[in-house]
Write a protein that binds this DNA or RNA. Structure first.
Lengths: 243, 243
DNA sequence: ATTTTTCTAGGGGTTTGCCTGACCGGACTA
DNA sequence: TAGTCCGGTCAGGCAAACCCCTAGAAAAAT
């Protein structure tokens, strides 16, 4: 039920002027996954401007992203963490299962270490913020290609401090960090105003599962009833997006 | 109440070497305000690709935006609603005070009608979402230039429904003013995170009565279910306290 | 290799949401 | 004065959501 002509997988402008002679290996193939066309365009333009990189495809959601990976076989995937609906971390996990060798660079608008930690634990090769200068994206891509992990300055030091500070990391921060990835995802959707059933449908899960997650969230955040849960979720979502 | 700037704003600047017959006006000058460099680049590239538009400046926060306006005298400003720090709508208000004739197109990642309503009431000439196709941005710019208001498809119909449902709703005020005293009181308590039963106890009323009020509120505000009700109530309460 | 979390989901009882309908009292009007 | 409208107050009943419990498979931690 998707009669979409994919302009998602646009063939990059023929690099006819970079033929065999160049001793350089073929350019790094990059896939962009983000639900904001404007942002995709920005990244694409930036990357295609480099001689040793090229955008091999774009995708606006998890499903199309997985399709695009099998089709275009990228070396690196740049994926937005806040993909509409299911979070980019879910996509990251799926990628790591099906394409373990694909390098994934997580793009985020938050500088919350909450997400960075989860992303790295899920196998991301780097974590970069949208607030950063555009050239940093290129730096990040080159760094992950060389096998290193890219982390934004601020974020890196903060996470180091947390490591030094020991397990107090969880105690010092909000109890939200205690939530598992799935729970955080559900929490976020609640905060966006979605009810139990819509969330179940969006995540392709049973209503019972969502209820279960809600129960665990309430337990971990010490919330007594559904009203408090919704209240906190909305406040949290608000502070996240309008940070 | 739409003092849509008379299109006199056509840069009465230097009467340079305007070519022969083609009395083409000089291109529309556009300022981009967003704290994400990548996104700015995406928009800039898109706009500069058009013959009749050009990006005259970029800014990453409210302060620099105001500076850039005085310096570059744009015809249209595209501003992100979720600017780091002050909320973009603040900037919009400031702009409307100091440069009333400048057309402002609000860029947002939410499809929440709450934000759109606030933006329009604060004087925005349009509201477009980042999820939309890139060409829509150009459409939006042209539409606001012609004096019309641009609204995203989804959002526009939803807001129309709210207006229609919220009887005789004046364009100036929110349909919330249609609520009776008791209803507004209940609405406020919902926004503070209280459930039906606590409200009933607090007001010494039957739970059934509160349910009835909730039903009427939903009707007047054209809200589909309890989740939407709570969502709007909390947002309203927040905007009231942080007024 | 074993224990603990996480994710998934069902059973069953309780509570809430939501629709219909109803009564009263004030206000406006014909 | 009678008629009508509306705001505020509730009940019944059915569906949905909520809540507490149990539980297995998979992943992570030990």
């Amino acid at each position: 039920m998707k009669p979409q002509s994919d302009k998602n997988v646009k063939t990059p402008t023929a690099p006819s002027k970079v033929p065999i002679a160049a001793a350089k290996k073929s350019p790094t193939r990059i896939l962009i996954v983000d639900d904001h066309p404007l942002l995709r365009q920005g990244i694409a333009q930036l990357i295609n401007h480099e001689k040793d990189m090229m955008v091999c495809g774009e995708a606006e959601n998890s499903h199309k992203a997985l399709d695009a990976i099998t089709e275009t076989k990228p070396d690196v995937a740049i994926v937005d963490i806040s993909l509409g609906g299911s979070s980019g971390i879910e996509l990251l996990k799926n990628i790591k299962v099906r394409f373990p060798k694909l390098l994934v660079l997580i793009l985020s608008m938050h500088d919350e270490s909450v997400y960075a930690q989860r992303a790295l634990r899920a196998g991301a090769a780097g974590y970069i913020m949208k607030q950063e200068a555009t050239e940093r994206v290129l730096t990040a891509v080159r760094k992950v290609l060389s096998g290193e992990v890219y982390l934004s300055e601020k974020l890196g030091t903060r996470m180091l401090n947390q490591l030094v500070g020991g397990r107090s990391a969880t105690l010092s921060g909000s109890p939200i960090e205690e939530l598992s990835d799935r729970e955080l995802e559900v929490f976020g959707l609640i905060g966006q105003g979605h009810g139990t059933r819509p969330i179940a449908e969006k995540l392709h899960l049973s209503v019972k599962t969502i209820e279960s997650h809600r129960a665990h969230i309430k337990e971990k955040l010490n919330l007594k009833n559904a009203t408090e849960l919704v209240h906190h979720a909305i406040q949290w979502a608000q502070s996240e997006s309008l940070g």
